[in-house]
Design a protein around this nucleic acid. Sequence first.
DNA 1: ACACTTTACTTGCGATGTAAAGTAAATTTG
DNA 2: CAAATTTACTTTACATCGCAAGTAAAGTGT
Lengths: 139, 139
Amino acid sequence: MLPSTSRSLPIVLIRARENIMAPIRKMLADSDITEQQWRVLRVLAEFGPTDASTLADRASLLFPSLTRIAQTMKTKGLITQTADQNDRRRQSIAITPVGQAVIDRHADEAAQIVARYKERLGGEKYEQLLDLLLLLDEG
Amino acid sequence: MLPSTSRSLPIVLIRARENIMAPIRKMLADSDITEQQWRVLRVLAEFGPTDASTLADRASLLFPSLTRIAQTMKTKGLITQTADQNDRRRQSIAITPVGQAVIDRHADEAAQIVARYKERLGGEKYEQLLDLLLLLDEG
DNA sequence: ACACTTTACTTGCGATGTAAAGTAAATTTG
DNA sequence: CAAATTTACTTTACATCGCAAGTAAAGTGT
């Protein structure tokens, strides 16, 4: 039998995500950045220049989405895209100083937003939650 | 400081959801139903006729999305929409036998898909995960 | 070399997400 | 009771999602 929608894992996952992202999206709107563009910047800032496939995977974006998002971000000057010398199919994507500035401008506030949830749950439960979610991402 | 993207709560939430929804979307494609339409049917089957606002809330859909989705579903004969007698702004939305048939046709398989994740985590951890996620949905 | 397959990425399409503006019915206010 | 406000829902606009099909470069086999 199907569980009540109030305890349906997919629905509860959506709600949780929506709650957390709402304030973050609001914050990013100040810089005209979408949450997906933010993820791309975060990954590039953390890992350095990355090829498109790996980037899509790390930013949890579908490939077609990344293609279009990257075009927009390139236009905005947030990233650069350069063809690999050895494999001309492959694109290396890197963050620009402008992109890094966006990260720097919002890093503190973003961290605070997440910290509020960490406090609400308590640090231990928060880590527990992360671990459980990561478990769902392994089969 | 920002956490590594691999332990970023929003990103991990997306990934978890994506993992769970992928097989469900695949299943629903057989009946030409999207995951959002499935949620609407689920809520209507559980709660009976519901006004649009409440329905959007329970199905975790934004209002504009629900408007469009309801139009599509009405055309498909999955739901009916009737104006409230006392308040003509308000729409009461109800599931049809055709819609109920979709639920019946996929209920078992949907339950099995979720059950796989329940087994993977263990029943206790699974409930724990639901509880933690629900905690995020209260501030 | 040549055809075949794989890989990396792009494009197209229909549906949804998100924000903002619009409409119409109900309620409140003066 | 007329004007202002609120509520319930619709429409619009732009970006993204998810799937499927397409393109081009690299690799593989013969």
